[in-house]
């Protein structure tokens, strides 16, 4: 986004008249962004700084007299804690698996949507429903789906090995993780598909025709022409979804409440800060979570060399 700041049609006014105009323009520009800037600083930057400060204290809301400066002690406890690393691993796993699966399914969906010539409106409506539905609602729908007494999965897929009418989907780590990931994938694949569709529609038909004339098979066309030309779109989709998946909270809260070791980093932070009133420890976790997300964004951008400006076709 940063790279897109320069308007395409730089003002073409004559240099002589420019200075007055540009002073006014500068002032107007600043005035126009001021409300947004103030709001964003007030609600995120300030509390984040406060979190940074609080994270240096032992401070529990229920025992305020016990507040004491502990330096980086909270960070020390967290970074050597097995629960923290377990939850981080869970979160990373959920992120990697859901994004990978969504990429494949989303791509298939995008191909279908790209080719379809009938019922485009129906298709668009259908695909926007998972996107628009409240995550909590989707989590409930899937929780009931996998419920042992009231779900339809065990009955419908009972013929598959490993599934019977008494399979308890929330009874062990992997089953529970599977259910959580299914709900996440269902809800967010449409978003992925739409971003990929936008990328797909940028590929010129001529190029595909030419490849076909040259005798390329369907697979070759897919891997040699379509995907390389969609690289930017794919990367943007991955970046968005990966950061989003890393923040997973709602589904876990509803479906398992973190039982069976299905807790995510966000969930851990929430529990410390809100349920256990550990403002100091919770703040330290908040700071770490924020830094992790920043690092993740940096890694994805660097690793895949995503050029956001290019991705936007600027």
């Amino acid at each position: 986004m940063t790279a897109t700041t320069i308007p395409r049609d730089q003002t073409k006014a004559a240099p002589a008249a420019a200075s007055d105009r540009s002073v006014a323009e500068n002032r107007l520009g600043q005035k126009l962004v001021a409300p947004a800037l103030i709001l964003m600083v007030l609600v995120t930057a300030y509390p984040m700084l406060q979190a940074l400060y609080l994270s240096l204290f032992r401070y529990r809301l229920t025992t305020p007299d016990d507040k004491a400066f502990v330096g980086l002690g909270n960070y020390g406890v967290i970074l050597t804690d097995s629960l923290f690393w377990k939850d981080t691993l869970n979160t990373v796993l959920i992120m990697l698996i859901t994004v990978a699966v969504e990429l494949v399914i989303g791509f298939a969906f995008a191909m279908v949507m790209h080719r379809i010539i009938f019922a485009r409106g129906v298709m668009r409506t259908a695909i926007l429903i998972p996107y628009g539905i409240i995550t909590v609602v989707s989590a409930f729908a899937w929780q009931f789906t996998f419920s042992i007494n009231n779900g339809w999965v065990n009955g419908t897929f009972g013929w598959l090995p490993g599934i019977s009418s008494t399979t308890n989907w929330y009874g062990d780590h992997w089953h529970a993780m599977f259910a959580i990931m299914v709900s996440e994938i269902w809800k967010t694949t449409p978003f992925m598909a739409l971003l990929l569709l936008a990328g797909l529609s940028q590929i010129s038909e001529d190029m595909l025709e030419a490849a076909k004339v040259d005798g390329a098979t369907a697979a070759q066309r897919l891997f040699k022409v379509i995907i390389p030309n969609m690289r930017a779109a794919i990367m943007v989709a991955v970046l968005f979804r990966a950061l989003d998946a890393f923040r997973i909270f709602d589904n876990i809260f509803i479906m398992t409440k973190g039982a069976q070791n299905t807790e995510s980093s966000s969930f851990l932070t929430y529990r410390q800060a809100i349920e256990q009133f550990q403002l100091g420890m919770g703040s330290a976790l908040s700071v770490l979570l924020f830094l992790t997300v920043l690092l993740l964004a940096y890694l994805i951008v660097k690793l895949f060399r995503v050029d956001l400006a290019q991705a936007r076709g600027e």
Binding site: V43, T44, P47, M48, Q50, A51, L54, L243, F246, R247, F249, S265, S266, F267, T269, Y270, Q272, A273, I274, L279, G282, S283, L285, S286, V287, L289, F290, V293, L294, A297
Partner: peptide, 10 residues
């Protein structure tokens, strides 16, 4: 990109 949860406490 902000993890909303990290703001909840503060």
């Amino acid at each position: 990109m902000f993890p909303v949860v990290s703001l909840v406490g503060p």
